[in-house]
Design a protein around this nucleic acid. Structure first.
Lengths: 140, 140
DNA sequence: CAACGAACTTAGAACAATTCCAAGCGTGGA
DNA sequence: TCCACGCTTGGAATTGTTCTAAGTTCGTTG
């Protein structure tokens, strides 16, 4: 998939130094950073980036459809640059690690739609990752 | 389904006045209140309930498995007393109204499991509810 | 090439949801 | 009855996010 920052070059959108650095932290697969992680990584490259710009930029990218925003159980939002392939998420309940997976979308029967106009389906598989399985087994 | 407060009577758990009032706000189907809504409704019945007790009680009930906690896109947690029937959620993207629905669980193919030990599947259907469809249509 | 305005960025204040804390209260078992 | 423990309280603290007012940068126009 085309990295986020490349997709942005083809947009009518001012790609300032700050925005470019922020977009570059969101490259690759299985990337689901929190705003604060994006901030930390951006500062490592360009120390004068401000937290407000990180939030502004992330929110704009979500609005432009270039990032997916999801809300984790811990209350922090995470950002996923993989907007091109339909996918769902596999999340470790212990450490929070999150992977993109593909699976069939579930179907909502007509008699369950309550007159709603369906727009999207989100699926989260809750699981324990290989690193966390041993700890959980010995604890119980 | 047995109301939450009844289920709690059969538990080895001190059912104080505050806890009972809090549990009683979480009765019925399609109930997905935020902590603050629980607090407001509890105070209407028992004005000296404190916010801390609401949070403590909700967290304990989640730990006991008597409530499901979910995190909404707005960052607030919501609490669902329907822990007996497996169900998924149908959420209005405009007004946030949320209904319980039943649908088949999607299946995660073996080659997508990445060695994780699956525990649960959560499905959220994003949609527009009948009340919000007209507004969205005229706005676009 | 200078001046201007719009858009962008900044630091810090403000805000909202939630958790923490120290102190007081109530209740069941000795 | 008394004590200890668990529950509750109000307020302070924490955390994630948004707002604000002022400063900076960039593209455009003259």
């Amino acid at each position: 998939m085309e990295p986020l920052v490349n997709r942005l070059r083809n947009r009518d959108w001012r790609l300032t130094a700050q925005r470019r650095v922020i977009a570059e932290t969101l490259a690759g697969d299985h990337v689901h950073l929190t705003a604060d992680e994006v901030y930390a990584r951006s500062r490592a490259v360009l120390p004068e980036v401000s937290r407000a710009t990180v939030y502004n930029t992330l929110n704009e990218l979500v609005g432009m459809g270039e990032l997916l925003e999801m809300t984790h159980a811990d209350g922090r939002k995470r950002y996923d640059p993989n907007v091109e392939e339909r996918h769902h998420h596999l999340v470790c309940v212990s450490c929070g690690r999150m992977l993109d997976v593909t699976a069939d979308d579930p179907h909502l029967p007509e008699d369950q739609q309550h007159g709603f106009e369906l727009l999207a389906v989100e699926v989260t598989f809750r699981a324990r990752c290989p690193a966390c399985v041993p700890a959980a087994t010995s604890a119980s």
